[in-house]
Design a protein around this nucleic acid. Structure first.
Length: 1063
RNA sequence: GGGCGUUUAGCUCAGUUGGCUAGAGCAUCUCGUUUACACCGAGAGGGUCGGGGGUUCAAGUCCCUCAACGCCCA
């Protein structure tokens, strides 16, 4: 371990985070200070947090820095409080997101995923993952996140993979996972299905086309309105509202679908909006007839089900028009459209209708279109076979809803059984509370969760499928499907089940059956009950494959593995297989709090609750969910990777230091407000911070221009972070990267420097102080006033900080620290003790102890500087204060949180300090108003009441206001003087300067008098109001009366002084 | 369309159950380099709390309404 830094004289004049931080990190690492010990005694319980695993797609930005800083504050605080503490770190493989960026990079290198093959691609992606995982972990450490890094997990590592396979198997076996042919949200660029909440609605300026479809009997036509004319090739009906007068004329008729020539029915369905020029927006643009395309629109799909319509899929996985996926009545006329992209097909089909006189009209129409959150292209509702988790089942959705605290939600939606006294019911709380409602309403409208993704990067679905014809299906399969409709899966009781697998079958068509077998992971197979134990997992898989089953090529939705995170990271389901995880699950799940962003309440929080409760006997994964604020850039845009406006925390650490970043972020964390962060660029040529020039992207976002000119104006340039993120610019030697910074972090940097220098002062003055064996008794008469006061303030501060942490009021924590350290400790206490410290041993003890306590309470927010100063401050301590427990410790990170006796809160001292400080301030105001030189010692003449106050303050007033002499005002008064009205007494001040400027003095007094008169008028008005006197709290009324008396006395004094001037 | 949030000093934000003359940091102005700190100290100026209405002795705070902005869900 490195030598403790320092005699005080060695401390530099300014805190240099870049020097301190690596050294401090090395000390923590050497001491293994982050390690969680599940076997440690836990009389008050344990404290644990799992990190929201960042995606391995890119480096962390300030939003992550905020999220992780808050977690670290909580973790460090509770560690100091003596709880056995675990902060579990890790990263998320982020299936589609990662695959997308890797594919993009491959494309830039001139190769493609499909050319490489699955194995090579996964290997390439693994390399990418390794790179970013390393970056992320490095970022976390640099910002001081005290995670137990030895336990770092990845959602695709072996431990997590086992959990995923086990969970999948159990849900499959229990009937909570099924496969079905459904319309999915299809991303034609990444060519995968998306979950409902991976689709982002965006407003699009489009058109509404009105197409004429001729009636089959030649009696005319109907006009359908559509925003998607290209899908008409797959129309299988036209729908009209049965209540619509238009319905009468076409009832029972058919139309000939143009281009295709397909004869399709007109069906009646009250989903259809009736045309009404005076109705709402939809009715105004409706034609009354709806084209029905079950294969390419979710609403049409539902209509199709109601009317038993055929489903004709005219598109391929790329969104192009094709006859390869179920379209078998392609006419000669339609042939020309096959092979077109969906965009080209739209143009061509509209042109065809126009040419053939069947285009009724076109209007501009702005509407919402679902876009892939990943590729940002419009999603295509597309028919395909996908795996689903039946989250609508009461065992999942109901369980998630019942987990909520009854304080936060009152009712359950229909069909959900009520909250009972089951394990975990009511254990989940949101903070801020309003997010409970978001959670609740989302669950009320939930649909089954599509979990299969047509990707290569992820957990391959542990299912083996085969298609069999009716006539060759096994008897047990036929038995299971006897009388069961198409597309409804049923469990099969087969030999595979006896061998430990689970077996489902479903009719894909009337004469074709799909069988699916899920195999548990090897570690589960032997442990779960099974009749036939002859095969281990590889043998079982081999046997299944030998029987014609093929492994499903799809992978699972990323959130399936993330949803298991609080369990999988702790060794579930078989912690005994991983000796390092011994005791974790029992000790640390449920975790104490999940700190996360509000956007993933649905994607992630809900799924963790469902899974944890389902697999761990109802137990919630965490008891508290704290939703942290968003970090926005200076233009109010969310910081994000995709926008390219994210700021790397390492840039801020570079410009301001990690503690400064942390402190500022904590201070910004309020309950309601998102934080706006104007971002500067630091010129790499000159070191100067400047506001960048901005450009507007095609998506309408304001971002820093990719290339920036140096503010030096000499033609030198730099690349902005946006330039790199958007792939527009690469830094070079001549045009290097301009790091980001923001003046928002100056507060934190200045604060750290203030603490550094206050410590320097204290250490310098404690050098050579005699150690005292006996603890200082704050109540003793010999203890000085300012010492009593500062210790009392310390005690109050600690109480406030405790409450702030309990209530997740992070900004209160930061502000309380700032005020106590800067104003109370530095501005008042240190200034006040300067004349007496050297000759007052008890004061030396108090100074050392208070400073020690300050480092402790600051540590959760500013771990580096407190750790850097810790050895010197510990060494300089010369004694203890009775009632304040600050046991010695090698490191600040493992020091105990200060324990204060309530008796140290001295309300008398606080009151006296308030009065004394006010008097000192009045004198300072006078000095400033009269331009008295700071070094000039003045004389005050006071009456008995003020003399008592000055005595009680024990020299503080004299020191803070630089008063040389205190004399009695009943004696002879000097000719040259000024006066202050204070608490009804007149304080005469002299020795200001050689000569008093009578004009300036008169002006000053006139202002004082005017202020007081206004104040008195206000108070009199209030007190003459009967309503106030009768209804307000009596102590409030009394307070007003006292104030009026004091103000009148002050006014009297000020007038006397003013009159004296005129004579 | 539904829900949530925001609107307070030039800027970024605090403001527990209604109750002292509405606060902080930065910026601005004046003075100051007194051996902890100019990343500092002392002092000052600056706000009809988004608009309108209401409840109340009393409204930044509660209610209604309008407007703007942001986010989530459809």
């Amino acid at each position: 371990m490195s030598a403790p830094s320092s005699t005080p004289n060695e401390l530099a004049k300014t805190y240099a985070p870049a020097e301190a931080e690596p050294e401090v990190l090395a000390r923590w690492e050497a001491a293994n200070a982050y390690a969680a010990d599940p076997t440690a005694p836990a009389p008050d319980g344990t404290y644990s947090v799992v990190i929201p695993p960042p995606n391995v797609t890119a480096a962390l930005h300030l939003g992550h820095a905020l999220n992780n800083t808050l977690q670290d504050v909580l973790v460090r605080y509770h560690r100091m409080k003596g709880y056995p503490t675990l902060w579990m770190p890790g990263t998320d493989h982020a299936g589609i997101a990662t695959q997308t960026v890797v594919e993009k990079r491959l494309l830039a290198q001139g190769t493609k995923r499909l050319e490489m093959g699955r194995e090579a691609f996964v290997e390439k992606t693994q390399e990418w993952k390794d790179e970013y995982e390393a970056t992320i972990l490095d970022q976390l450490q640099s910002m001081g996140a005290s995670c137990d890094y030895d336990r770092t997990r990845f959602t695709m590592d072996d431990m997590c993979a086992t959990a995923v396979r086990h969970a999948f198997f159990v849900l499959f076996r229990d009937g909570l996972i099924y496969r079905g042919k459904r319309l999915v949200n299809w991303d034609p660029v990444t060519r995968t299905a998306l979950a409902d909440d991976e689709v982002e609605m965006e407003d699009v300026e489009g058109h509404m086309w009105y197409l004429n479809y001729p009636l089959a009997d030649g009696s005319g036509h109907v006009t359908v309105a559509t925003t998607r004319p290209e899908t008409m090739l797959g129309d299988t009906a036209v729908a009209v509202n049965p209540n619509d007068p238009l319905a009468e004329a076409v009832r029972g008729k058919e139309v000939i679908l143009p281009i295709v020539g397909r004869t399709i029915p007109i069906v009646e369905d009250d989903y259809v909006v009736m045309a009404d020029p005076d109705g709402d927006a939809k009715a105004q643009i409706a034609s009354g007839f709806l084209k029905v395309t079950p294969a390419h629109d979710p609403n049409d799909w539902d209509i199709g089900l109601r009317h038993d319509l055929p489903v004709i899929n005219i598109m391929g996985p790329d969104g192009g028009i094709t006859d390869q996926y179920g379209w078998d009545d392609v006419s000669d006329e339609a042939q020309q459209f096959v092979g077109l992209s969906r965009e080209d097909a739209r143009t061509a089909i509209v042109a065809w209708f126009e040419t053939n006189g069947l285009l009724d009209r076109v209007i501009d129409y702005s509407h919402s279109v679902g876009h892939s959150y990943r590729s940002h292209v419009p999603i295509e509702p597309w028919l395909s076979d996908q795996w689903y988790v039946a989250v609508t089942d009461d065992r999942l959705r109901g369980s998630a809803l019942r987990a909520q605290s009854s304080d936060q939600t009152d009712s359950m939606p229909e069909g959900v059984s009520p909250r009972g006294d089951a394990n975990g019911d009511g254990d989940l709380q949101f903070q801020p509370k309003r997010y409970a409602r978001t959670y609740q309403t989302w669950h009320e409208n939930i649909r089954d969760w599509c979990i299969s993704r047509q990707l290569w990067w992820g957990h391959q679905i542990p299912v083996w499928n085969r298609l069999v014809a009716n006539d060759v299906a096994t008897p047990e399969v036929l038995a299971a499907l006897d009388g069961v409709e198409v597309d409804v899966a049923q469990p099969v009781d087969s030999a595979w089940v006896a061998a430990g697998a689970a077996h489902l079958a479903r009719r894909v068509t009337v004469d074709e059956i799909e069988e699916s077998i899920s195999v548990p992971p090897a570690s589960s197979l032997g442990r779960l009950p099974r009749a036939d134990q002859s095969m281990d997992e590889p043998q079982l898989v081999a046997a299944i494959e030998a029987d014609g089953f093929v492994r499903d090529p799809d992978v699972l939705d990323t959130w399936f593995s993330s949803g298991l995170w609080p369990m999988s990271t702790m060794g579930w389901p078989w912690p005994e297989d991983y000796p390092d995880t011994a005791g974790l699950l029992d000790t640390f799940n449920p975790t104490s709090v999940l700190v996360t962003a509000r956007e993933i309440i649905t994607l992630w929080v809900s799924r963790m609750v469902m899974f944890n409760r389902y697999f761990l006997d109802g137990q919630v994964p965490f008891t508290d969910v704290y939703i942290n604020t968003f970090v926005q850039d200076g233009h109010g845009q969310k910081m994000s990777k995709s926008l390219g406006n994210g700021v790397d925390p390492r840039d801020i650490i570079h410009s301001h230091g990690a503690d400064a970043m942390r402190f500022s972020l904590v201070q910004m964390s309020t309950e309601t407000q998102d934080v706006r962060m104007p971002v500067d660029i630091i010129c790499p040529h000159t070191g100067e911070a400047f506001t960048p020039t901005y450009i507007t992207t095609s998506a309408g976002h304001t971002v820093a221009a990719p290339i920036q000119d140096s503010p030096a104006g000499d033609g030198r340039q730099m690349v902005s972070n946006y330039g790199i993120a958007a792939g527009i610019a690469e830094p070079t030697a001549e045009i290097p990267l301009g790091r980001n910074s923001s003046p928002k972090f100056d507060v934190g940097r200045n604060f750290a420097n203030k603490v550094w220098n206050a410590t320097r002062f204290a250490l310098g003055n404690l050098e050579g102080a005699q150690a005292s064996a006996e603890a200082v008794d704050m109540a003793a008469p010999t203890t000085t006033f300012v010492d009593k006061w500062i210790v009392s303030r310390l005690a109050e501060t600690i109480t406030t900080l405790d409450a702030a942490v309990d209530n997740y009021q992070f900004n209160v924590y930061a502000d309380t620290l700032y005020h106590f350290v800067w104003n109370d400790f530095c501005d008042n206490y240190l200034e006040a003790i300067k004349p007496t410290l050297a000759v007052t041993p008890s004061q030396q003890v108090v100074l050392g102890s208070v400073l020690d306590a300050i480092l402790r309470v600051m540590h959760p927010v500013c771990p580096f500087i407190t750790e850097a100063l810790w050895p010197a401050v510990s060494a300089a301590k010369v004694g203890n204060i009775a009632g304040l427990e600050l046991p010695a410790s090698e490191l600040a990170i493992v020091a105990t949180w200060p324990v204060v006796d309530a008796s140290l809160i001295d309300t008398d001292a606080a009151k006296t300090f308030g009065r004394a400080h006010e008097l000192a301030t009045e004198i300072r105001r006078l000095r400033a108003a009269r331009a008295v030189k700071p070094k000039q010692k003045i004389t005050v003449h006071v009456d008995e009441a003020i003399q008592n106050l000055i005595d009680a303050a024990g020299g503080m007033i004299e020191t803070l206001a630089n008063v040389g002499t205190v004399a009695s005002s009943s004696g002879e008064l000097p000719q040259v003087s000024s006066s202050i009205a204070f608490e009804g007494s007149q304080v005469i001040v002299s020795d200001l300067v050689e000569e008093v400027d009578l004009g300036a003095e008169a002006e000053r007094l006139d202002k004082v008098i005017a202020d007081l008169e206004g104040n008195i008028k206000n108070l009199e008005g209030r007190l003459s109001n009967e309503g106030y006197v009768n209804n307000a709290k009596p102590e409030l009324v009394q307070e007003s009366r006292d104030q009026l008396v004091a103000a009148n006395a002050d006014l009297e004094a000020a007038r006397t002084a003013r009159t004296a001037l005129d004579t």
